[in-house]
Amino acid sequence: MALDQSFVGRTYPPTEPYEVGREKIREFAEAIGDANPAYTDQEAAKELGHPDVIAPPTFVFAITFKAAGQVIEDPQLGLDYSRVVHGDQKFSYTRPVRAGDRLSVTSTIEAIKSLAGNDILDIRGEVHDASGEHVVTAWTKLVSRAPEGV
């Protein structure tokens, strides 16, 4: 079923802050097998000019995607999440995410399209720190596949 176009442009309330922990960054860096010391060694991060360890570029997705849950699970929108696949992902950084950040995400529905029976949903997540400064924007394209035989 085609999604309601009137949801385009809808912005959801900012999320409660997510506090970025050093050990969470370490856990993520280990999971992707990335030994870059900027992720785990405060001194190495400082040598690069960062106040604390920074997170790998895609780390923030866990935070923005959780925030996008407000959209995905919005009963009024009616997205069938069991049929959703991740189409595209993009990030634009003002600065890297770093340990100690308290990040809040504001999600907006940028576009809703219907293509060959698939619903395509573009969600933008604007990530700000505790002082209200922009850190990164994440764009996530979700595709809800048409049921078989339709």
Partner: peptide, 14 residues
Amino acid sequence: AGDPAAVVEYGVRF
């Protein structure tokens, strides 16, 4: 690049 913060934009299609 050396410093991961050198990445200012990154996008992919799956």
